[in-house]
Design a protein around this nucleic acid. Structure first.
Lengths: 129, 129
DNA sequence: CTGTATCCTTGTTGATACTG
DNA sequence: CAGTATCAACAAGGATACAG
């Protein structure tokens, strides 16, 4: 909330969390737009490593589902603003729950995975990979 | 709760809902096991159209994540029982939220999609596809 | 600046056949 | 009964180049 740019990892740090909202970038976009409407380049800058093509696809799906609005402001240079709709806001509790779950239980899940892998990776051999 | 077999569609009716828990069958499996531990064939019968391979993969992932336990009872015929762990139960609120969201807002989302498709499908031509 | 057009890699889901 | 082994089909995600 204090950084102007590129911070992020609340939900699905690389997609490891079991609770997902839409595709890979949907939850982040919804989180960002919940605070304030943003233009394409602002969203992209804050999310970080996402190509224009993929972010465009995510925003198109969001728009098609009725979760975000898209408004063009002619230029040049032109700008396109995206904002959350009321329907889009109904997803915020789900995003919040995903974040809370990850905060509370992701570590336990990762530990369980490690234990499982240790136990099921060729019994008798201690070297992983 | 009264049917012994094959009923289902609470979460992700075909994967259209935007909130997903794990892979395609994870939410259903968790919902089923929340009521009572079940054996492989029972899970499969209740879910319906899922192949043994895919259900096995889902259960393996669930086990690896520490969400379900797997206990073998030698036969023949043998049986393998699956049950929810405490960590697995932490996902129940997420499943419940997904079901509630779908109940409350899936219709609006579907309507938005229809409207979007109607508007963006070749303006001037009324024929879809 | 805000995308679109290709091409490519990877992951997910499933059908089918077979095994302890 | 409870899986495993293969093979096939498809969608998601991304790199790169280009366009309005």
């Amino acid at each position: 909330m204090t950084d102007p740019d590129a911070r992020f990892d609340p939900v699905c740090p690389s997609g490891i969390a079991p609770i997902r909202i839409g595709d890979r970038w949907t939850a982040m976009v919804i989180s960002l737009l919940a605070e304030e409407p943003l233009r394409f380049s602002a969203i992209r800058a804050r999310i970080g490593p996402v190509t224009a093509k993929v972010l465009t696809a995510a925003l198109r799906n969001l728009e098609r589902d009725g979760f975000v609005t898209r408004s063009e402001h002619p230029g040049p240079p032109r700008s396109v603003h995206y904002g959350l709709t009321g329907l889009g806001r109904t997803l915020l509790p789900a995003v919040a729950l995903a974040v809370t779950w990850a905060h509370d239980h992701l570590g336990a899940m990762l530990d369980a995975q490690e234990a499982y892998d240790r136990e099921h990776a060729r019994p008798g051999r201690t070297e992983p990979r």
